[in-house]
Design a protein around this nucleic acid. Structure first.
Lengths: 147, 147
DNA sequence: AAAATATAGTTTGATATTAAGCTATACGAC
DNA sequence: GTCGTATAGCTTAATATCAAACTATATTTT
């Protein structure tokens, strides 16, 4: 394969990967928006829902965002009374973030809907195709971890 | 395949797709950041570079963003003297956005670097794998167009 | 021609996001 | 115990992003 061809193929593949990810994200985020949640807010609630109360640093690590960002996202979730902060009595630097009752109820419902949306999105591929896509994506993603 | 299994597979595939896209984006955006450009700014400059002068609406359509957003991005590019706006003499509602000399020089250089970064990213897959990934992603992406 | 409608771009208000610097707390070394 | 360092979280200043309301211009209807 000539250099020009391989460059063309790489750019083409890149574009399709980005479009697919964007397209899937757009549609799943509509489900979140319908519940009044942004993608980040959903990410935080989901982390708390599946891992239990976490300190902000762990929340940040879980959804791969900066701690400054998490402060704001949790501020907004707190205003909506979906989470509450609790100062750790042992180490007072830590704030543990808890789901409130209404936060817990909301995320339980929205998570099911988002899950269904993702399954629907992936429905354009059969099982074998999904496995294949997963493997190829993993190979690409791994590049990152190693560097 | 049981429902639980197919749901699990779909969620798993989704996660890998997102991670791969994120990982590739992170690394290509570093190349842009090194040149002092954000992803959006790069997108605008690249559109103008390959399509010639465009009105803001067309720029917005090209990079799939809202027109309100484009106003700001172009404001910032204009401050950096990388583009200039020109009021259309025929239909005065239109502003045509042009690359300046320095904008043109910058994007010519940065585009080559970004292209190289993308080729490097895709390098973890061989040609056949890239074609396969492209096909699978296209199937996923298409869902969007049809709806 | 005047009124209604459509279109291009801007503004506003909310949220997100990062990097970098800041405060408060904790902990280990001396 | 005090000092230096590390850590958790907050703040600030940019930029991004959207939706919705708005302005200016153009076009269509009547």
């Amino acid at each position: 394969m000539k250099k020009a061809d391989s460059t063309y193929l790489a750019l083409n593949t890149y574009t399709k990967l980005m479009r697919a990810a964007e397209s899937v994200t757009n549609r799943t985020s509509r489900v979140m928006a319908a519940a009044g949640l942004t993608i980040s807010q959903f990410g935080v609630l989901e982390a708390l829902y599946h891992k239990g109360p976490l300190c902000q640093r762990d929340v940040a690590a879980k959804i791969l965002k900066s701690t400054g960002n998490i402060t704001l996202v949790i501020d907004n979730l707190e205003k909506s009374a979906l989470v509450r902060r609790e100062r750790d009595t042992g180490d007072r630097r830590y704030l543990t973030v808890h789901l409130t009752k209404s936060g817990s109820e909301l995320i339980a419902k929205v998570f099911v809907d988002v899950e269904a949306a993702i399954v629907a999105e992936m429905g354009s591929l059969n099982g074998d195709e999904q496995e294949l896509l997963g493997k190829l994506c993993k190979k690409l993603g791994l590049r990152g971890e190693q560097q």
